[in-house]
Design a protein around this nucleic acid. Structure first.
Lengths: 176, 176
DNA sequence: GACTCATAATTAGGTGCCATACTATATGTC
DNA sequence: GACATATAGTATGGCACCTAATTATGAGTC
């Protein structure tokens, strides 16, 4: 019960109270969400002292080892966010001295984002540290267990991304 | 590779490129995060037509079957968010006609939040539909598989919430 | 060169979360 | 009654995401 979020407990309690079937499935779903939320909170706590969010960290990672930098639209594509979001993140990273925007010599619409020395050092140190931390979250799993776990995640992911037709456990087969 | 987010792919590629051990653990972590993100997006898509977010839906769920309503601080506790957050969510829900704020007859600091008829109908319909949808995400899992899956999630959750001391795969044992 | 269409980056406004501070009120003590 | 402390709800500002619109520029056609 410890690895559930308050809000999910409330929903789960209510489903249980009304004699809902399949609270086991709901609970499993909430456990996945609770784990992801816990990872996000821990990640934020680890990055906060460096004045970084996960989104900013991703941009720093993308810019490492690229002396010519990247354009904001390329950063947006690789990070999977909109160009508007990248503009905001770059504002903060530039303000804090991690990178600079440079005009493109051929195309005045374009800019090239490059890390500063401080940005490079930060990106390097944090990449190593962050990677190790991420890896540590799943320490203690045997290769076979990881394989089974990953298979479960993929199956669930497919249920989310590609819900089946009427043969599924939903009522009216509603879609987004 | 399909059930990973762009940003995680970038980090994973980089870790692979530099001959990192344990990319299997990182990948597993990113798969959990990708599944949670997919669930969140699908949830948002399902609630959007009703002008609801997940946070608002949780408040509606909490207020169901409570003719006397709840105070905002109680909603905050049960939903696991701050009172400031609840104020904002209630603003939107009141604006859209789902609920009303009522002054407390004894304590002028307090208000009691109660659903309107429309809010009650919405909460009832959505609760059933949403519960079924959540349950459907883990359809097809045998009880034994769910048990194993849940065990994996709990183990990983413990790694996040209660990291071990030096015997862990992290470098300098940094803490938040 | 004028015009149309496309692209790059930014701006504006919205949302949901947060922390902090503020205002109003309640409670307890003297 | 004055005062100190605590509580309830809100206001303010920040952040990271979004969509849509705007501005500036580039490319292609005539």
């Amino acid at each position: 019960m410890e690895n559930l979020e308050h809000k999910h407990l409330a929903v789960l309690d209510e489903a249980t109270r009304r004699g809902e079937q399949d609270t086991g499935n709901m609970r499993l779903c909430f456990e996945v969400l609770a784990l992801a939320a816990a990872i996000d909170r821990s990640c934020a706590a680890r990055l906060a002292p460096y004045r970084l969010s996960e989104g900013k960290f991703v941009l720093l990672s993308l810019l490492r080892d690229l002396p010519d930098g990247l354009a904001p639209y390329e950063l947006a594509e690789r990070a999977g966010v909109t160009r508007a979001t990248v503009t905001g993140l770059l504002d903060g990273l530039e303000r804090d001295g991690f990178l600079l925007r440079h005009g493109d010599k051929d195309d005045r619409r374009k800019i090239s984002v490059r890390l500063t020395s401080m940005g490079k050092a930060m990106a390097e140190d944090l990449f190593v540290e962050h990677s190790q931390w991420i890896g540590s979250l799943f320490a203690g799993f045997e290769p076979r267990e990881r394989e089974v776990f990953s298979g479960f995640l993929l199956r669930a992911w497919r249920n989310v991304e590609m819900p089946l037709d009427a043969g599924q456990a939903t009522g009216a087969g509603t879609s987004p």
